[in-house]
Structure formats: structure tokens, C-alpha cells
Design a binder for these strands. Structure first.
Length: 224
DNA sequence: AACAACGTCAACCGCCTGGGC
DNA sequence: AGCCCAGGCGGTTGACGTTGT
């Protein structure tokens, strides 16, 4: 039986107060994040380390963008979701200033519904069969190439194969599926990155990091 | 005005993975 | 090789706000 990440008693739960935020920010600004498990005590917070990490990563980090998603961000999320499935951290990694939680929430509350309304199955990114004349108006009110295709790739299987994105790469390579104008360029720059497209050929390199650098795609042409 | 239904999003939970020993 | 730990991930929950009746 795994030990809990922290002692459940004596820890606050639920929404963070301004004072707690302030303590966390001040501590991290002074000392960096370091070990999340010991951070709460060191920072004088009655929170578990996980909670602190989540709060910092999803809300307090200074580089977070917040606010509404731009149309190109929406398009990119939809296309990446078609490619990667519910791998929110990977998707968020391509959206500077956005967190996986934010992307996931936005997908579930906005984009999923939007695709459904357009007659597109949001999980498979295919046209729903019960719609004879779907309104293909695109992810952000305009056409989304990936979603309107007949031969959309299945999203990748998730659990247990976090880095097995080579299928996605082969989808990318599949010209018939293609996103002909979308160069996602999932190859990421060293050292802390996954060369997703080349993943398969590098599978033996066991020290592959799961981290994906949050650099924007070098080329992104969206068609509407 | 009051209530219900629905939508949004911050936060939690449990599981998985990789690294260290 | 196997265990333990910390960090990370995706799914889910629940509080709160908004909209509809």
C-alpha cells in the first residue's frame, strides 16, 4: 500500500486563500521549487506538496497567459487532440503560457461541444454518422481540416504509453490523412525534449524525458 | 424574485513513470 | 532486480457563476 503523498490531517483543502498564494509565491521566488514534498512546511503552508505544485503550475506561475483562448490556439488544440488524444500535457506543451489543466478544461467545456455541434465526433475527429449534412464551419467558426476528414487517425492510446507517439508521427506522414498545411513540427529541441517524430528510432535511448519543451510550433499555417 | 438547470474551472484523487538506492 | 519516493499526468469532483423558466 502506497503511503499518501502527505499527512492528510492538518492540511488545508479546497480553494487557496490570498495569504496562501502569497506565501507560496514568496517562498518559490526566494528558494525555487525544489522538493515539493517538503516545500509546504518550509513555506509555512498547511497544504500537501502536490497541492502546492498544482497551484503553482496551474495558477501562480508568472509565465502563464490566462484569459480567453485565441482562435489559432483553438485550432491548434483541436488538431493536436486529433493527433494525440487526451494527452493534455503534450498539447499544452505546444501552447506557450497554457497549462494542461487549462487546455483540458477548455476542451471539455468549449471545444468538445463545438465539434459536436458541427457534427464531428470529438473523440475520433470524424464526422458523426447520424449527420447527413453537417455544418463544417471549422473549429473556430471556420472549417477544420482534420475534423472533416473521412480518414482521420484514431487518437493515440493513452495510459502506459506516454511517449509512444510514433503512431502520431506516422499519421502525420500519411499524406491522405495529412494536415497538409499544418507543420506541427513535433520534433523538439534538445536537451529536455522528445523528438516525437523520431521517437520510434530512438526507443532504445532509455533516458527520454517526458518533458516537452513549451516552444511554439515553428510553422503553423491554419486554413479556414 | 426564486428556483432549477446548466456551464465553467480550480482543485483533488489515484495511478503511472523514472530515478535513486 | 526490486523497492521506495517524488513528480507528473489524466479523470473526476464540487463550488460557484450564469442563464432559463
Amino acid at each position: 500500500m502506497r503511503k499518501p503523498c502527505c499527512e492528510k490531517q492538518d492540511t488545508n483543502k479546497g480553494a487557496w486563500s490570498k495569504q496562501e498564494d502569497q506565501k507560496l509565491i514568496e517562498y518559490i521566488q526566494r528558494n525555487g521549487t525544489g522538493c515539493w514534498r517538503t516545500l509546504p512546511q518550509a513555506a509555512g503552508l498547511l497544504r500537501c506538496g502536490k497541492s502546492c505544485r498544482l497551484r503553482w503550475n496551474n495558477y501562480l506561475r508568472p509565465d502563464l497567459k490566462r484569459g480567453n483562448f485565441a482562435e489559432d490556439e483553438e485550432d491548434l488544440i483541436i488538431k493536436l487532440h486529433a493527433l494525440l488524444g487526451n494527452r493534455w500535457s503534450l498539447i499544452a506543451g505546444r501552447l506557450p503560457g497554457r497549462t494542461d489543466n487549462e487546455v483540458k478544461n477548455y476542451w471539455n467545456s468549449h471545444l468538445r461541444r463545438k465539434l459536436i455541434n458541427m457534427g464531428i465526433d470529438p473523440t475520433k475527429h470524424r464526422l458523426s454518422q447520424n449527420l447527413t449534412h453537417p455544418q463544417i464551419i471549422g473549429a473556430t467558426g471556420s472549417a477544420t481540416s482534420s475534423a472533416s476528414r473521412d480518414h482521420a487517425c484514431q487518437p493515440l492510446k493513452t495510459k502506459g504509453d506516454h511517449d509512444q507517439v510514433s503512431d502520431a508521427a506516422s499519421c502525420l506522414e500519411d499524406a491522405t490523412w495529412g494536415l497538409p498545411d499544418l507543420n506541427l513540427d513535433l520534433r523538439l529541441t534538445a536537451p529536455q525534449s522528445i523528438a516525437i517524430v523520431e521517437e520510434e528510432s530512438k526507443q532504445n535511448e532509455s533516458t527520454m524525458s517526458r518533458k516537452v519543451e513549451s516552444t511554439p510550433p515553428r510553422t503553423l499555417v491554419l486554413f479556414r
